[in-house]
Design a protein around this nucleic acid. Structure first.
Length: 168
DNA sequence: GCCAACGTTGGC
DNA sequence: GCCAACGTTGGC
């Protein structure tokens, strides 16, 4: 076993995540329409978000799928982590917006995981609504100034959002 | 489109 | 290692 795997076992902290996507770029409907409903989550270019994928995510972890930078920002559905972290191919593609000339296949800087659709909520759990919920007052994704596209979610927060979505 | 907040870059 | 300049995110 390599050091990284040992580290992952020791430091794994979350089974639940919130992942943001701009629906004009990639929405939960786009995920639903993918073959096998799976999409490689490419384009993450933030070290903290990368480290979550590399060090803490595990296959089967559940994901709150969040639409950002749109008319009604909020959690729109549920997905799951469907792969270990691996090199993001777009970093090697000179035609891609995500091209990184400083990265090499021998030592890739950026990783991704595959994400699989599980559920699309009947109603969006809006950012505005979540801000009113005392149960979510500590939720990392809701803290002022937070811009991370991937954040851990506690089991209590996750269960609250999911039960709210399903009872709406 | 504005702009606050934040991350990254690079000169020194 | 500091920090100013710059780029990006994302709510509004």
């Amino acid at each position: 076993m390599c050091a990284r795997n040992i580290n992952k076992q020791l430091t794994s902290t979350s089974q639940y995540w919130l992942m943001k996507s701009e629906p004009s770029v990639f929405s939960i409907c786009d995920l639903f329409n993918r073959p096998n409903k799976i999409e490689p989550w490419d384009g993450v270019r933030n070290y903290q978000a990368r480290n979550f994928m590399r060090d803490n995510m595990q296959i089967g972890d559940l994901v709150l799928f969040y639409h950002s930078n749109c008319a009604e920002p909020g959690v729109v559905g549920l997905a799951e982590i469907a792969s270990e972290a691996y090199a993001d191919p777009s970093q090697f593609d000179a035609q891609s917006d995500f091209f990184d000339p400083k990265s090499t296949p021998d030592n890739p800087r950026w990783l991704l995981v595959d994400v699989r659709w599980k559920e699309t909520f009947a109603h969006t759990i809006t950012l505005q609504g979540m801000k009113q919920m005392p149960q979510l007052a500590q939720m990392q994704a809701l803290q002022r100034g937070n811009r991370l596209s991937i954040t851990p979610v506690t089991p209590a927060e996750f269960n609250w959002v999911l039960s709210t979505a399903r009872s709406a």
